[in-house]
Each structure stands twice: as structure tokens, then as C-alpha cells.
Computed example of a mutant assay.
Amino acid sequence: MPKEWTAKQERQYEHIKDSAQDRGTGTKRATEIAARTVNKNRAQSGQSKTASRTSVRDISPQRRGGKRSHSDGPKGRTRDQLYNEARQRGIKGRSKMNKDQLADALGRS
């Protein structure tokens, strides 16, 4: 755990990691999920030196609580997340695409 983390953040990290492992997630993936959650919370509270716009603007991982994986409501990644991936892959015309179009473009490339 990074030295910048508080004791509370370390406890949160361990709890999230243990919960993920209890649900059957592998150790490596569980540590990644836990670290990303704690780091996103740190970014939203202004504790990190660098933070992505998506991390700061999106709702907290605790509040989201799987909203994007249930049967009703939006599914999958947000438009901003899709856009960032499209930018990394160099897809042309991405700024004018909506969420569905970005998902289709990423699926094709």
C-alpha cells in the first residue's frame, strides 16, 4: 500500500480486497479492484497529485454500487470511458459520436 494512504484507506483496501475474493475473484484482480476504488476516492477528495477527469467527475464507487451491471438503467462503461479508449486507439470522428456509436467503433477496431 502506498505511504500516502491513511489508516482508514488501508482498512478500506483490505475490506474491498477480501470481499472480492469471497465472491470468487482472483487475488490479482481483487487487489486491482481495491486499489482502484481507494485511489478513485482519494482523487475525488483532492488527496492525489494527479487524477483523471473521469475519476473526479464520476460518482463514487460506493455510491454506484453496481448500477451499471444490473438489468435496468445504463449498462457498461460510461461515454467518457469509451471516448478515452477511442482516443487511445486513435479512432477518427470520436468527438461527434454518442455512447452507442463509440461502443460500435471500439468493437470493430
Rank of each mutant, 00 (worst) to 15 (best):
V56C: 03
A7L: 08
R53C: 01
S71E: 03
D58S: 11
V38L: 08
L106C: 02
Y13E: 03
S45E: 09
T31V: 07
A105T: 12
K8Q: 13
Q101W: 04
A20W: 12
K75Q: 08
N84I: 00
Q9W: 12
G26S: 10
I33C: 04
L106A: 00
Q47T: 03
S19W: 12
I33H: 09
D18V: 10
G65N: 05
V38Y: 09
E85G: 01
A105C: 08
G76W: 02
S52E: 12
Q12H: 12
Q21C: 12
K17H: 12
L106Q: 09
M1F: 15
S95Q: 08
W5C: 03
R108C: 02
G24L: 15
D22Y: 08
Y83M: 06
S55E: 09
K28R: 11
G65V: 01
Q47M: 14
Q47A: 12
K17W: 14
L102A: 08
Q44D: 10
K67S: 06
S95V: 05
R53D: 12
D58V: 02
K28P: 10
N98S: 04
K3L: 08
Q9F: 05
Q81L: 01
T6L: 15
N84E: 04
K8V: 03
S69N: 10
A34Y: 15
A20K: 03
E32M: 13
N98H: 07
Q101D: 12
E32T: 15
R79A: 06
P61H: 03
M1Q: 08
G24V: 02
R53P: 07
K3T: 05
R94H: 14
Q47S: 15
H70Q: 07
I59S: 11
V38E: 01
Q88D: 11
Q88R: 11
R53Q: 13
T25D: 02
A51S: 11
S55M: 14
A43H: 07
S45P: 12
D72R: 02
K40Y: 10
Q44C: 04
N84V: 04
S52C: 04
E4L: 12
T6G: 14
N98A: 02
P74D: 09
G24S: 08
G73V: 03
Q101A: 09
